[in-house]
């Protein structure tokens, strides 16, 4: 598991440039451009299970859901940040991407840190030290558990 660490106010234009928003529709194709204007090395080295750690207001700017989609399909399932932009945060929930808001841990994490996530307990263990993060609101937990909003609704509509 590798850790990609970024600063404050990473915006959706550098995560997934606007020029691709209507020309790329396949999520795996989106993944090839993830963080393109922030860190061109990201897509070259990212592997399944890697984690992104960032400063405050991660994902600010446009409402484009591809910003969450491209990160998810690049193999990242967890983003830990000091805070998230609100629409991006919603897009993470709806894409089944775990967005952990834990401001006190971010500066402690280095590229070589060992991170363990206890989802059920809303806890992070970083280099042996335990941190709690705010639980996902009960009302939306079902959405995450189902892997995102679309699968969640698929289930609902199937049941009728």
């Amino acid at each position: 598991m590798k850790i990609f660490k970024y600063g404050d106010d990473v915006n959706t234009d550098v995560i997934f440039p606007g020029k691709y928003t209507y020309t790329i529709t396949d999520p795996y194709e989106m993944a090839k451009h993830a963080l393109e204007d922030l860190d061109p090395d990201f897509v070259k080295t990212v592997e399944k299970g890697d984690i992104i750690v960032a400063g405050k207001n991660f994902g600010c700017g446009s409402s484009r859901e591809q910003a969450a989609t491209c990160i998810k399909y690049a193999g990242v399932d967890v983003i830990i940040a000091k805070s998230f932009s609100r629409i991006f945060y919603r897009n993470c929930i709806n894409s089944g991407l775990l967005a952990i808001e834990c401001p006190e841990v971010v500066d402690k994490i280095t590229k070589d840190s060992k991170i363990e996530i206890k989802r059920e307990e809303n806890k992070l263990i970083v280099d042996g030290v335990e941190y709690s993060y705010p639980p996902i609101p009960e009302a939306v937990r079902d959405i995450i558990d189902d892997g995102g909003l679309i699968p969640h609704l698929q289930k609902k509509f199937k049941k009728g």
């Binding site: 409402s63 859901e65 969450a68 629409i87 897009n91 709806n94 909003l149």
Partner: peptide
């Protein structure tokens, strides 16, 4: 603002949290 999946969900269900 909301995301695309959420817009699709409103088209289907009429509601959002």
């Amino acid at each position: 603002g909301i995301g695309r999946s959420e817009a699709a969900a409103i088209w289907a269900t009429g509601e959002i949290w």
